[in-house]
Nucleic acid binder design. Sequence first.
DNA 1: CAAGTCATGTAAAAAGTTACATGATTGA
DNA 2: TCAATCATGTAACTTTTTACATGACTTG
Lengths: 181, 181
Amino acid sequence: MAQKNRLKYILLGLLKKQRQTGYDLAKSFDSDIGEFWTANHSQIYPLLKRMEADHLIAHEAITVGQKLQKKQYYMTSAGQQTFNAWLKSPSDLTGSHDEFILKLFFIDDPKSELLRPMITMQQQYHDEKLHHLEQQFQEKFPNQKRIDQDFGHSLVLRHAIDRERGYSNWLAEMVKTIKTE
Amino acid sequence: MAQKNRLKYILLGLLKKQRQTGYDLAKSFDSDIGEFWTANHSQIYPLLKRMEADHLIAHEAITVGQKLQKKQYYMTSAGQQTFNAWLKSPSDLTGSHDEFILKLFFIDDPKSELLRPMITMQQQYHDEKLHHLEQQFQEKFPNQKRIDQDFGHSLVLRHAIDRERGYSNWLAEMVKTIKTE
DNA sequence: CAAGTCATGTAAAAAGTTACATGATTGA
DNA sequence: TCAATCATGTAACTTTTTACATGACTTG
């Protein structure tokens, strides 16, 4: 597999919230989910067909006006199960397509018992990553001379560190929020 | 094109720093550049061939020990030009593969006159994005009830806002750094 | 001398982008 | 009525991943 077909899970997650057409799903990538993932209708339509063939979703044909045929897609129970299994599976974030964020997006209940273990795993990952990055910075840029020699690299590494710090803080905030819920 | 072949520019940028083999280039994606982009050797080797056919790079065969053949790749002047043109071209960041960061990585001179205009463009983009996201949050989550109804979405949106704020701060810091240089 | 790393490749498949194509409905 | 938007699809191509494949060098 080229990737783990995250788009499939995104579509399932969106359909879980409400039954909708391929067109509606495609629009979601211009706003909401668009902050974290992109997809075009030309990728969505064929995938919906495949998912229907796999019995993860089904559709109801609706006629609008005189002729316009819409396909209102909805999740099957198999789709539900597949989606739930994905939520529980370990998240990877190769290529900066952060799968954890993706999963989080679909957990609408603040009391979900999935949240805490997911966050804990993520905290561990990001703490380690932050530590690793800080070490890298120390090694590669111990003084101003090195920074001036490879300025862009130092900026980018600093950005990565900032990003991880921000990520960690955000996770810590999250823990507080669900604690008081 | 499926994307704008950013990997090509990454390889050029890495070769600009020093001539090296495909194997060496592949290793870079385990550390350095690995924070921002991933690539496997199976993608790198064929691309190097294509780039050589396009005269962007060339190689020198080196024999190590008795038989081992290495291909030491290096940039041609055409490659230089292509790379420089890329640095000056507008950056897009669809799919969270942030091209600006990628470009920055390759600007090793803190006095480069490319930096300021690039940063300015980026600041504008991220300020607008931040504003847009904050508005989104206000619209979608005006009260706690809405947050509880769509908890994950709210967290993820908050994360996006944090991320943009972090990005903006980082850009502002950068401006200060290059100012005093 | 064996394990780990260095070194280079190809093949098959999945994922994603861009372009091509068509037609209906809605609101100004 | 005309432009914008709704709605669905296919084709061609590029990018990316995973797996297959081979062999040399280095260090303990």
